[in-house]
Design a protein around this nucleic acid. Structure first.
Lengths: 257, 257
DNA sequence: TTGCTCAACTTGTTGGTACAAGCTGATGCA
DNA sequence: TGCATCAGCTTGTACCAACAAGTTGAGCAA
């Protein structure tokens, strides 16, 4: 029987209701005081149960408004085609992808010279602390924060490709710009990790502490050495990364779903 | 100025101490009552702060024992080599990987016939509800739950490869077994997502509610159609997925770190 | 020594109270 | 009509109390 603590019963009951689609039309959950009456529990107990759902990313709360079921329409990113010379794209891949999905892209951008951290230096095969060019993007979709992207280029590359260190956007895309300077990316190494956000990440992505982030680290290689290291931070609940490898017989684009 | 609520101050102070390495030798945090004295706060306030750290996966707690800083030694899985015919492996890739890392593998295994869910049917291009073979693994490393892996094979494939539906292990590896029946996997499609665990996943992987899971869905294709769909669930904090694509000049195995 | 009990610690659960702060709609004044 | 105010809702923060339940080690008994 119900040996579960009461706050878990609250969370489980609400989770079942959410899964059943009860809040599909109106995402607002009952208020704390209504739940207190319904479950004959104290406010602390109800809040304990709700905080479980919040920490699982199912529900969000805001002061004065109440609790809401979070929508999760997942954005799928084909990482094996992204920035791949076999699938040429005009300019910024992010902008075209988002526009194609019928959403409105927006990004802020900055460039700085910065000493390489240990992690970056290791991937770029340069000395830790040596100067690198950092190009940083903060990207939005329909004005909702979507991802942050930081790309480091080794110092020797910036000397050969001066526009890298200039503040402006590179219209044709950096991959193509580098190729025009004889630096071609012939391979890359991707690392994908998930963890809970740091306070800084939670602020930039406007997510609660209960939503995981996806970390995507791509190290690009030319024929003879690493040429860049890109770290992208996504909202984990709204993004999915896909890889296509080899021959995919009869698989249509944008499938499944 | 400390405009932050007190429970956040508690969390931030402890997070800074953790980052500084204060608990590297002894991972045990001060008890709640010590923290109450130190921050001049009530027990509930201290617990609020601690629960923030727990939900960020930095700290775990157990009744009677106290709070501990979670270690996070990350296991790196090279997904682009995993089960790839270009990199032949003897038998089970998981077992060899774990053994090579100096750890002790252990797994439980079961096979069942089951109707295809909508998700699986879509990926295997069979009718929803049609019979599939499900081979399910629950994997441990040094007796700590590590991952669950469920692979569905379409019914037509099981008829041609009878050992798939038999309960025993397939010593040489299923990829190789299928190849010996003329069914070669020539490509695959990987989907990677992160989310908070369901209660069932939290139970199987023995993780608290504050640790995200990584979901890895691999759909394998023969020359003419999908032949399998594998869904692997990892602890997100202890696993990282890597992909090598193209030529990686001068990159040594197991690097970075 | 071995094994058991128990006190003293730990966190987990549940109840209560009070006030702060954000949001909304109704009210009423100009 | 237009606008400001405010009552009444919501969640956020902070405190208190009590008991349940898991762990450990001291100390006693066989």
């Amino acid at each position: 029987m119900s040996k579960q603590p009461k706050y878990r019963q609250v969370a489980d009951a609400l989770r079942r209701e959410i899964d059943s689609g009860k809040y599909a039309s109106d995402p607002r959950l009952p208020s704390e005081s209504e739940l207190m009456k319904r479950f004959d529990a104290s406010r602390n107990t109800v809040r304990n149960g709700l905080s479980l759902l919040v920490s699982q990313g199912l529900v969000s709360s805001s002061q004065g408004l109440g609790y809401e079921v979070r929508s999760h329409e997942v954005f799928k990113l084909n990482a094996s085609r992204f920035e791949n010379l076999d699938f040429p794209q005009n300019g910024d891949a992010y902008r075209t992808d988002v526009t194609n999905a019928g959403r409105r892209p927006h990004q802020t951008f900055r460039v700085e010279m910065t000493p390489a951290s240990a992690d970056v230096a290791e991937r770029l095969k340069v000395d830790a602390g040596s100067t690198t060019v950092l190009r940083f993007c903060h990207r939005f979709v329909d004005d909702v924060p979507w991802s942050t992207q930081a790309t480091w280029y080794p110092g020797w590359l910036a000397e050969r490709s001066p526009r890298l260190a200039e503040p402006g956007d590179i219209e044709e895309g950096t991959t193509r710009y580098l190729a025009s300077h004889g630096i071609e990316q012939v391979g890359y190494f991707d690392e994908i990790a998930a963890r809970m956000p740091t306070p800084e990440e939670a602020r930039l992505l406007e997510i609660g502490a209960g939503v995981p982030v996806l970390l995507w680290t791509r190290t690009g290689y030319s024929e003879d050495r690493p040429i860049r290291c890109t770290v992208t931070t996504f909202r984990g609940d709204l993004n999915q990364m896909n890889y296509e490898i080899g021959t995919l017989s009869g698989r249509k684009e944008n499938e499944p779903r």
